[in-house]
Simulated scan of single mutants.
Amino acid sequence: MIGYVAVLAVGYVLGTKAGRQRYEQIAGTYRAVTGSPTAKAMIDAGRRKIADRVSPDPTMVKLTPIDSGTDVLEPDQVAQKTR
């Protein structure tokens, strides 16, 4: 019984050590990729594109300004048809 527990303990220690090293490797790669300005721009563009497709709100377009502080907006009919 003691041998069985000792084998389990050694396996646990070695497994957690290898698991932690692999975790650090994956996390480091993720940080390196997402830390790149090019990757950040691509991720942001993708998020915006998904948000635009998923958004239930119609895209608004400016029609005519009434005065310097007031604009008239209307839903964009073309954008609604392409969704």
Rank of each mutant, 00 (worst) to 15 (best):
residue 61 V to M: 14
residue 32 A to V: 03
residue 18 A to L: 15
residue 79 A to I: 10
residue 57 D to K: 15
residue 69 G to F: 03
residue 15 G to W: 02
residue 65 P to W: 14
residue 78 V to A: 13
residue 49 K to G: 08
residue 60 M to L: 14
residue 70 T to N: 03
residue 3 G to L: 11
residue 50 I to A: 13
residue 62 K to W: 11
residue 32 A to F: 10
residue 17 K to R: 15
residue 24 E to Q: 07
residue 64 T to S: 12
residue 37 P to M: 06
residue 51 A to I: 01
residue 38 T to L: 08
residue 9 A to Q: 03
residue 30 Y to I: 06
residue 43 I to L: 05
residue 6 A to L: 06
residue 64 T to Y: 09
residue 22 R to F: 06
residue 80 Q to M: 15
residue 6 A to V: 04
residue 5 V to S: 04
residue 42 M to Y: 14
residue 3 G to V: 05
residue 1 M to R: 11
residue 51 A to L: 06
residue 2 I to R: 05
residue 83 R to A: 06
residue 61 V to N: 10
residue 13 V to G: 00
residue 7 V to D: 05
residue 44 D to N: 06
residue 46 G to D: 04
residue 21 Q to T: 10
residue 1 M to F: 15
residue 1 M to Q: 12
residue 27 A to V: 06
residue 32 A to N: 08
residue 74 E to Q: 14
residue 2 I to V: 13
residue 67 D to T: 02
residue 21 Q to R: 12
residue 4 Y to S: 14
residue 1 M to E: 10
residue 7 V to G: 01
residue 60 M to T: 02
residue 72 V to C: 07
residue 74 E to H: 12
residue 77 Q to A: 12
residue 14 L to T: 09
residue 81 K to F: 08
residue 45 A to K: 11
residue 44 D to M: 03
residue 38 T to C: 00
residue 81 K to M: 15
residue 55 S to G: 07
residue 58 P to A: 09
residue 7 V to L: 07
residue 74 E to W: 10
residue 31 R to C: 02
residue 81 K to N: 15
residue 72 V to H: 05
residue 52 D to S: 14
residue 79 A to F: 13
residue 74 E to D: 12
residue 81 K to A: 15
residue 5 V to D: 05
residue 53 R to C: 10
residue 11 G to Y: 03
residue 24 E to Y: 05
residue 23 Y to T: 04
residue 53 R to S: 10
residue 43 I to H: 01
residue 5 V to Y: 06
residue 35 G to W: 00
residue 59 T to S: 11
residue 21 Q to D: 14
residue 23 Y to P: 00
residue 34 T to P: 00
residue 23 Y to M: 11
residue 20 R to W: 09
residue 75 P to Y: 04
residue 22 R to C: 03
residue 19 G to Y: 01
residue 63 L to Y: 13
residue 39 A to Q: 03
residue 26 I to E: 05
residue 72 V to G: 04
residue 81 K to Q: 15
residue 14 L to N: 07
residue 7 V to H: 02
residue 48 R to W: 11
residue 61 V to H: 10
residue 12 Y to W: 15
residue 67 D to E: 02
residue 47 R to W: 06
residue 83 R to C: 09
residue 18 A to I: 12
residue 82 T to W: 13
residue 62 K to E: 14
